[in-house]
Structure formats: structure tokens, C-alpha cells
Amino acid sequence: MYASVEPQAPQEQDFADIYKAHYRRVFNLCRYLLNSFDAAEDATHEVFLRAQRKLESYDPALPLSSWLLGIASNHCIDLLRRRGTERRLFDLEGSDAPEARSAGPTPLGQLLAAERGDDIRTALSQLPEKYRVPLVLAYFNELSYDEIARTLGLARNNVATLIFRGKQQLRQMLQKEKRSGLSG
């Protein structure tokens, strides 16, 4: 996805360019994760400050954007945890048992494709945090289930369930939206 492999560790003076080039991507990630424009602005700023501080520890073998997005997702997840939802954030207990065995609604790729991006993003922002965060990590950061599990401190199975259920809810929301849109 990000083919821009940096040939060497960037120098301090390049940092303003890095900031300009990657701001939007980092900001978007923060906004998806934190679900707030203002909080995302603050977080993005903090992410770049952190990046600037540990620029020497950057490994040029990695794409720079992945490195920045890694810092950003860690920072945002920290923020989410500190909001006092630590226990509940990715809690699978109780709420709803996995529906892995049920047939469930069929994938709505066609429907999704027909939707405007805005509707999908709006629906995503309405998802509970515990589904939204793994979905964003999986489809924005394109992390593997293992990486997500490590980032969130969860078992891999839980990650799979959360992503699966998150997508299901997303579909239901969009379907409902579509139906109300048609009838309205």
C-alpha cells in the first residue's frame, strides 16, 4: 500500500516536510480511533512531537508512514484507555455471544461499494469503541490480526470476533440507513 520506502533516516530539518506529507494520514487515523475532531488534532500534534523526539530510533527499513501510524495508534489507544474505559474497552464478556455459527446477514460488498464513502465513515463513527478500534487497525493501518492483538493486548481469537462482529454491525447500520433512505 505504502510503497514509499525511505532510503535513510530523515534528518531534523526534513521534519517539517514529513509533518506536511503525513499529517492528513495520521490525523485521519486519530479521528477514526478517537471519534472526535478536536481530540484528533491534539493527538496528531502529540504524535508528531513524539516522532520528532525519537527520530533516531526510526528504522529506515520500515515505511515512514507505518512507523508514524504505529505511534499514532498506540497513542490513541492509550488515550482511549485513559478515558476510564480500560476494563470495558475490548471486553467480550457477557454483552453478546459470538454469532460465528449463525448464518447472519450476507456480506454486502455491493451495497458497500454503492454507498458514498461519507455514509460508511459516519456508520463507522457510530460503532461502539470496541468494534471501531479493531476495524480501523485492520482496514486503515492494515495490521494483521496478530499485530492488532498485540497492540490491544487481546487474544487473537477475540480480535477475529471483534472484527467480524464490527463488520456485521456496520452492514446492519448501512442497510437500515439505506432502507430509511429509500422509504423516505
Binding site: Y23, R25, E41, G109, G117, L135, Y139
Partner: peptide, 28 residues
């Protein structure tokens, strides 16, 4: 196939940089 397509759409939609009209604030 449908699920793969769905994932692709999600990736494209989320990674769409034009999704926000954010302007980088000057880096303090």
C-alpha cells in the same frame, strides 16, 4: 469473494485522504 470485496471497499474508504478537510496546524 463478497467478503474480500467488502474488505477492499473498507480499506479504500478509510484510507481516502480527502475524507477530511483538515489543514496541518503549524507544528509547535
Amino acid at each position: 469473494e463478497a467478503l474480500r470485496f467488502e474488505s477492499r471497499v473498507l480499506v479504500e474508504c478509510l484510507q481516502d485522504l480527502d475524507a477530511c478537510e483538515c489543514v496541518p496546524a503549524p507544528l509547535r
